[in-house]
Nucleic acid binder design. Structure first.
Lengths: 209, 209
DNA sequence: TAGATTGTTAATCGATTAACAATC
DNA sequence: TAGATTGTTAATCGATTAACAATC
């Protein structure tokens, strides 16, 4: 990996590359050229090669890229060759959907704790994760050394949850609420702002009548 | 609105501007300068003025922008001053979460139909939306003139659902599955690729130890 | 009026594309 | 070897930032 800071645009494309490579792998395709990948993924061949060469030469002149090798290399660049402990904060339908998605599709992410305010679901269990009230969030994150907090609480509670997990030493926050969080330097955050996405959608629906 | 094509980057910022303006409005703040908004939203003042001037001069020299006026203007640019009929396809936990979010927070979006393969939930109702099996999706979309299809079905079913609603004359697709859809020109699509977001998150967690 | 702040042009910066030598 | 395709440099394009005249 080179010294120069990799641009955000490149990083956002990496999971997509990996996703397409996984598809190719499933289809039993063993090698792919930047030109052929370009046709499928929609980026130019030039951009694909440029993107990949930020991290090293994964291809072979005259041949192309090994699908499974490139898939794994990108995974490794992203950090998907490590294991992560996750806590889900907010166990409404969105939290439940996420929990189920993670446990079925993301082998390197382990849901170790689930938190909600509601008593009703408090004693239920999800796989090997306890379901607890938010009062124990801070200590749990600290003691279990949770890496990632998934925040799916109502908008008004999002910042206080973020403050709590930050205080407990969280490393990353996956924010699925409709607010932007105020966080100290050094805490990674990714926002999934669904309503922003919906609003962009309707913009693009204009003119199509 | 000027002729020149507005860049995608600008459009993606608009919902965020609107979100911050709504917040200011709630706080009773009536005017804001690009400089002050910059401090809150994190874009440069220059960029804010540049973005807004793609669509017209909404400010007043020496004063700034009227919060409520700018909020509404951005809404109008995005197309949020119109009404939209929505069908939710896939009524698992994610579909349920979306349905609830939309009906509580998006007054201009109306869920008119919900579709799932499962019999169990088939006779339940959500507000004024019927819950139906996927077999009736095509006719429903066509007859009710549904504007937007929200796709939350399992990955393997996403493309066939998309094909069905496109055939029935849908105008926009809000895709919450983990695949990219193959769609004809003229159909607007927005993808919420949650796993891509999670994978970007872990990239940014590196180096923080 | 004077001060503030926009609207807009020009300068800079960064990202994408094109081109091609290196090499498998 | 010849053909194919990468890795990488250079050219282009577009987006962001800076600057300032217009004007409220």
């Amino acid at each position: 990996m080179k010294d120069r800071q990799i641009s955000k645009a490149v990083i956002r494309r990496l999971p997509r590359y990996r996703r397409y490579l996984k598809e190719l792998q499933k289809k039993g395709i063993e090698k792919i050229s930047s030109k052929d990948l370009s046709k499928q993924i929609g980026y130019t061949a030039s951009q694909i090669r440029q993107d990949l060469n930020n991290f090293g030469g994964f291809g072979q002149q005259g041949y192309g890229y090994s699908v499974s090798n490139l898939h794994d290399e990108i995974g490794s660049i992203l950090g998907l060759d490590r294991e992560y402990k996750m806590a889900i904060v907010g166990y409404g339908r969105l939290g439940q959907a996420i929990a189920s998605y993670i446990s079925n599709n993301e082998p390197n992410f382990h849901i170790v704790g689930i938190f909600d305010v509601k008593q009703i679901i408090q004693d239920v269990e999800f796989k090997d994760a306890q379901i607890m009230t938010c009062g124990s969030l801070r200590d749990f994150v600290r003691n279990e050394k949770v890496d990632i907090a998934v925040i799916t609480v109502p908008t008004a509670k999002a910042q206080i949850v973020a403050d709590t997990v930050v205080d407990a030493g969280i490393k990353g926050i996956w924010n699925l609420t409709a607010v932007d969080l105020d966080l100290p330097e050094g805490i990674a955050v990714e926002n999934v702002h669904m309503s922003d996405s919906l609003h962009a959608l309707v913009y693009y629906m204009q003119g199509e009548q």
